[in-house]
Amino acid sequence: MALSLPGEQSVTAGSSYNPVRILVRWIKNAAANRRRGVALRALSELEPHLLRDLGISRSDITDAHQATGARTPAMVLNAARARSAQL
Rank of each mutant, 00 (worst) to 15 (best):
L5Y: 15
Y17L: 13
G14Y: 02
W26A: 14
L50H: 09
V24S: 06
A31F: 04
Y17E: 08
N78F: 03
A67W: 07
S15T: 08
S16I: 08
K28T: 06
A39D: 09
M1W: 12
A79V: 02
P48I: 00
A79K: 11
R81V: 13
M1A: 15
L77D: 06
L43Y: 05
L46Y: 02
A42H: 03
Y17K: 05
G37M: 04
H65M: 10
R81Q: 13
S57G: 12
A2I: 07
S59I: 08
V11I: 13
A32V: 07
Q86I: 07
N18Q: 12
S16K: 07
A67N: 11
L40Q: 04
L5Q: 15
D60G: 01
E47G: 01
R41H: 09
T68D: 07
V11N: 05
G7W: 11
I56Q: 00
I61M: 04
S44N: 09
N78V: 03
R25K: 10
S84T: 07
N78P: 00
E8K: 06
P73G: 12
Q9Y: 06
S84W: 06
S4W: 10
R58H: 09
N18I: 07
A13M: 13
G14R: 15
A13E: 15
L87A: 11
R81C: 03
R25S: 13
L3F: 12
M1V: 10
A82K: 15
L40S: 05
H65Y: 11
Y17I: 14
V38C: 03
L5A: 15
V76R: 08
P73Q: 08
R83I: 01
I22V: 13
L40T: 04
M1K: 14
R25P: 00
R34L: 12
S4K: 10
A70H: 14
Y17A: 07
Q86N: 10
I27F: 05
L77Q: 12
L51H: 01
M75R: 13
M1P: 09
P6N: 08
P6W: 07
D60I: 01
A74S: 13
D53Y: 02
G69H: 06
L87Y: 04
G14E: 11
Q86S: 13
V20P: 00
V11K: 08
R83M: 05
L43T: 04
